[in-house]
Write a protein that binds this DNA or RNA. Sequence first.
DNA 1: TCATGTTTTAACCAAATGGTTAACAAAAGT
DNA 2: ACTTTTGTTAACCATTTGGTTAAAACATGA
Lengths: 205, 205
Amino acid sequence: MSKAKKDKPTEERILAAAKNIFVLKGMAGARMQDIADEAGINKALLHYYFKNKEQLFEVIFLEAAQKLFPKINQVFNADQPLFEKIESFCEEYIEVVMQNPYLPLFVLNEINQDPEHFLDKVWAGRTKPDPTKFLEQIEREVKKGTIKRISPLHLLMNLISMAIFPFVAKPMLQKNLGLDELQFRLIMQQRKKEIPKFIIDSIKK
Amino acid sequence: MSKAKKDKPTEERILAAAKNIFVLKGMAGARMQDIADEAGINKALLHYYFKNKEQLFEVIFLEAAQKLFPKINQVFNADQPLFEKIESFCEEYIEVVMQNPYLPLFVLNEINQDPEHFLDKVWAGRTKPDPTKFLEQIEREVKKGTIKRISPLHLLMNLISMAIFPFVAKPMLQKNLGLDELQFRLIMQQRKKEIPKFIIDSIKK
DNA sequence: TCATGTTTTAACCAAATGGTTAACAAAAGT
DNA sequence: ACTTTTGTTAACCATTTGGTTAAAACATGA
């Protein structure tokens, strides 16, 4: 029991422990015993709070997914000039993910295990993504002559890719480029500004 | 036994089966029984060819990693003008990954499970990545005045991110953007040209 | 033909793992 | 005080899973 596992109510400790273990090992690799240990309780109590592994996992997964998905949707729907939108997305998104660098890989990997199932759960109730507003916005900017004629779809993919991928490939990039934890954080900090600059340089007329 | 599992020698069938199962389910989620079934043999025979799960996994993982890593290194070291380099990288890399769309997520995810261990294995014997040549090349182009003063590191990250991430996020992108298999392939096909254009538009003076 | 080595199988085993039971302790009503 | 509800535990159970054994089928060479 390394951290502050003492006072907090049991359920919170379980959720925190489960998040650690699941994000680290994935659904298939996580062990209920490890989660119990990490929470400082025994396995029976774990099942007292969450009836089985699947249910506990779903709670953790959805919480993680909610942290990542809505912000992307916001690029579609926010009422904001295009360039500002790109800037604020990078700023906000990278900030969020820097707090939880392993979330994207975790979420993408689990979605991959059963796309239909999880994506349905993620968007259940919530408004599904709708690119039309974004498409119109691009169209308008093109007509105004402020940006080149570009494919909104590729633009969107480029934006998301450049912001998220470095986290997904974090260990690989660190090792292969010889970056320690601090250097990596610094670089991602820079990217909050670098990515918008890179994109705007590319698309503005 | 759906496909041509009949004639090929046992060891090849095992490797093919193992690749399928491991890439799909990951090390932790894969079952030796499933691999045996997929190869059309029984578990004892599987252990006759590969003494345990770990060893079989390592063969599959390394083969997968070799397919993805060296090509990135080549961006560093190839003796080629910068713009051409970017173009040929996108062309070749996206082509390779389109044949195995699930490899990147598989490899990144497993590396994440134990970065030190796997990255050591991947680069064992092989020349480790060395960015200096690439850095110099950028520096030269900047001095020549052909491109803006940019950070080579961010450029490299942008390039790799835009090429690979869509595959890592494939199921998520397909579902959220409503793309079927064919549309996705078409878009990735376009990206072979779109990404270089996007980058060069951004950095050229 | 028969002896030898190789490939394949069915049956088996021990450890790991998700989950349950029944009893005990603590808290909350009354 | 005492009854009921809630929280917690140790011990247990059934299934899954990676791995082994011993014998059978097959191939090979003398």
